[in-house]
Design a protein around this nucleic acid. Structure first.
Lengths: 204, 204
DNA sequence: CGGGAAAAACCAGATGGTCGGTATAGTTTT
DNA sequence: AAAACTATACCGACCATCTGGTTTTTCCCG
């Protein structure tokens, strides 16, 4: 199988992502990536045209992975319960567990990292970041929409989608600052509690 | 007044903060700061020992400013209403308006910026960041505590404090991504709505 | 199935540039 | 006279990128 190159490429991406989330994109030298990935500089530039290309590839992979994870949890939640609102609540519990119940602290979100260095990147990456955030929001909204058939919601799903994104990003940040991943878990559960409170069964 | 030096120092800090929030700490060269602040390199190093010193001074000033702003809003809210819970809600409305009702998008938070480049900084700055986040949280908790005399709260104030921090940081991030500061305003108002829902008057 | 050419994957090293920081000597402002 | 700079030069480290060569893998032909 001709996947040796692919494996090296993935290793470069893994190492890069880890380093970037700790030091910021501009704070990571290619020399450092090359050293940690146990390749040479030539090897790096065989796989990536330049720094920008690395950034674009990283974000692409990150968003794809994230999308898959969220969709998996959504599917799981649908298999667990039938009621649309309960599915949303189950989904949020699964999400909280997935992100918050690991020992180590969350490594950070590439979307946040790149946003705080936005002027270093070209318009292609800005668009990737926007699409990513919008995609997360839409996944939540689509999952929550069926619940509107049987329930009234006091808040717009649009605002709730933004709120989930904000809580996630903010929760990751606070967890990193405190070195305590439990914060992230609890914050998602608080959001879940809020969702529970703003939905009311429709009076038939 | 012998504050010419102080004014230059402040100008350097202003320029640095603006640039860092756009490009990240590692992404900003001292040469660039020097150019934008219309001084020379010698002038820069007259005011700051080195890069680390700049970072520490920036964070120090940022936290002091932020602390003052929050305390002002808290005082304002106390002048507006008497009921402890209403004061918290008024405070959050004032906060939302202050941060969210400006035309331009929020420039970003230095605490978040530094956290996403944490490995670039020494332990002194890590401690500043931790203290900063804890300070914001404590200011909210102290402001909300009197409400517990007359009301029951279904959620711990500790968790609510973390939630406010998370919503703020996450809201700032989402606003920047979308280029729309209204998101930040609405997210703080959603948090306010949550606070309203978890507090119940005590049955005398 | 095996050898060999082509293509893919990777290495070693050089280049030109940038950056943080230092140093020095002088000038303006307070 | 002290504080607050300017002007300029310099250094060593670092850094992105390129060139040209080498190894490894693939795969096709016999």
């Amino acid at each position: 199988m001709g996947d040796k190159g692919e494996r090296t490429r993935e290793r470069i991406l893994d190492v890069s992502q880890r380093l970037i989330l700790q030091k910021g994109f501009s704070g990571v030298a290619i020399d450092e990536i090359v050293y940690e990935a146990e390749i040479t500089k030539g090897g790096f530039f065989y796989h990536f045209k330049n720094r920008s290309d690395l950034a674009r590839s990283l974000m692409e992979r990150y968003l794809e992975d994230d999308d898959r994870i969220i969709k998996d949890l959504r599917t799981q939640s649908c298999e667990l319960v039938d009621d649309p609102l309960q599915r949303v609540l189950a989904f949020l519990k699964l999400y909280a567990d997935a992100l918050g119940q690991v020992e180590e602290v969350h490594p950070g979100c590439l979307v946040a990292s790149f946003t705080y260095e936005s002027q270093q990147f070209d318009e292609v990456i800005h668009e990737q970041v926007r699409q990513g955030a919008e995609s997360w929001k839409r996944l939540f909204i689509e999952h929550a929409e069926p619940a509107l058939e049987t329930h009234e919601c006091e808040v717009s799903l649009d605002d709730l989608g933004d709120m989930l994104n904000a809580i996630l990003e903010g929760g990751i940040l606070m967890s990193r600052i405190e070195g305590n991943n439990a914060i992230l878990h609890r914050q998602i559960m608080l959001f879940r509690d809020y969702v529970r409170r703003v939905f009311h069964p429709k009076a038939a």
